[in-house]
Design a protein around this nucleic acid. Sequence first.
DNA 1: TCGAACCCTCACATGGATGTGAAGGTCCAG
DNA 2: CTGGACCTTCACATCCATGTGAGGGTTCGA
Lengths: 122, 122
Amino acid sequence: MRIGELSERTGTARRLLRYYEEQGLIIASRGANGYRDYDEATVDRVIQVRGLLDAGLPTRIIKQILPCLDKPRAIYFPDATPEMLATLEAERDRMARRAECLLRNRDAISEYLDAVRDYNRV
Amino acid sequence: MRIGELSERTGTARRLLRYYEEQGLIIASRGANGYRDYDEATVDRVIQVRGLLDAGLPTRIIKQILPCLDKPRAIYFPDATPEMLATLEAERDRMARRAECLLRNRDAISEYLDAVRDYNRV
DNA sequence: TCGAACCCTCACATGGATGTGAAGGTCCAG
DNA sequence: CTGGACCTTCACATCCATGTGAGGGTTCGA
């Protein structure tokens, strides 16, 4: 599929799809005319990437965790250097802390909303 | 406490503490000499704010959810306009989605790490 | 064959969080 | 009473994700 369709199906500006490619987050083959040609799986990947960006991860880190996300686990572990593994662990823990923070605050908001509803019902 | 101590205790640059104040995320009284004077509770608040910023929320939104976070629930619900409540609900749901995304990816990383460990053990 | 709707690259602009430093006031210890 | 470690404001700089538009090629249907 070409960039227009991918843009539409992921709700992502074309500009950003090119940017993600530049950052190594997605790949595109090229037609004879130079047009980008995307794989069907790229739709999910873009959605993944957007979710992580929205959750505060920079493209640099997202790129590092991408190998973890391939559906059928890749047979080859080319970049599994000790440093990379340490980075992944650290980043995984950081994500867990972020999620905790979000859930804690989500609960606080819910409680607040409940309190307001109680107050307004009286 | 003055800005230096708050900075040290929260691991936050002085510059940022002033910025958060400018954005309405924390408040400081002033001594006769113009120095900022922080309440003990500000330490926790700064940590809260940093967590939310790190999780991708902009200061604009954080400011809106702050009233939900005061420990003894405030008796007054001054800004509880319907729009505000709708905003809070929307933001709460958005936070839940973010957290989900983070946890999903955290699990993917964990699985990957396990696979690598298996591979290396053989 | 023309125009609309795609696509390309390049480049400058913007907004938000953060870094950095200048110019100066305050306070305390030696 | 002086030097160093605080504090103040102001302003410009940086990084990153994103917006925007110019200038130009491709494809396809009327």
